[in-house]
């Protein structure tokens, strides 16, 4: 396929959620995963070099166009929105879920030392946290984990892409 890069660019452009290589492969039929990945790499580099208003990023197991940083003010003005904001309590709760998943509510509360019911509900509604199932112990407590949207929101390719807890410590100095 001689216009492979253009086709892939178009597919990513029209998608709102990150597009996976598997989806592109299914649409293009005769193109290998390797060719698709390498075209995506080329595209990412081109946007990087151009260094304009949008960039191609690899997030949540797929590829997505995102605005460049430091353009927030203008974009928000267009959308008439407030920036996404999570309270420190929500961030702490999300951090425990992200690093301890699959995790029970009682475990989060033990770490944070406070009741987290309301905050957890908020994170579920924002679709950053999901119910993974129930633990097979008496009372069958619900276990929580993070969602694809969590990866997308924090610009992570996968959970393994999360900085380690030690890395955060070092940044903190």
């Amino acid at each position: 396929m001689d216009n492979l890069k253009a086709v892939i660019e178009a597919l990513v452009f029209v998608s709102d959620a990150p597009v996976t290589v598997a989806v592109i492969e299914r649409i293009l039929e005769d193109v290998s995963k390797k060719e698709i990945s390498s075209a995506l790499d080329d595209l990412m580099r081109e946007y990087e070099v151009r260094s304009g208003g949008i960039f191609l990023k690899e997030v949540a197991g797929g590829y997505q166009f995102r605005t460049g940083e430091a353009l927030t003010t203008w974009v928000l003005r267009l959308k008439g929105q407030k920036p996404m904001d999570l309270s420190p309590a929500a961030m702490e709760t999300l951090a425990v879920v992200a690093y301890r998943q699959p995790v029970m509510k009682s475990e989060i509360e033990r770490v944070r030392g406070v009741d987290v019911s309301g905050i957890l509900r908020g994170l579920l509604e924002k679709n950053l946290v999901r119910i993974m199932g129930r633990k097979n112990v008496p009372g069958r407590p619900i276990i929580y984990g993070t969602t694809r949207k969590f990866l997308e929101t924090f610009g992570l390719k996968a959970l393994s892409d999360l900085p380690t807890l030690r890395e955060f410590k070092e940044l903190e100095g």
Binding site: D85, A98, Y99, G113, F154, P163, L165, F168, L171, E172
Partner: peptide, 30 residues
């Protein structure tokens, strides 16, 4: 308990410093 809490408090601050969709960068509307 305090050390564990401190670790996650730092992790939360760390997450907050990451490039966040809808705050620092934007994708196409859903």
């Amino acid at each position: 308990q305090l050390l564990e809490y401190k670790t996650f408090k730092e992790a939360a601050l760390g997450l907050g410093r990451m490039t966040i969709l809808g705050r620092d960068v934007f994708s196409r509307d859903h």
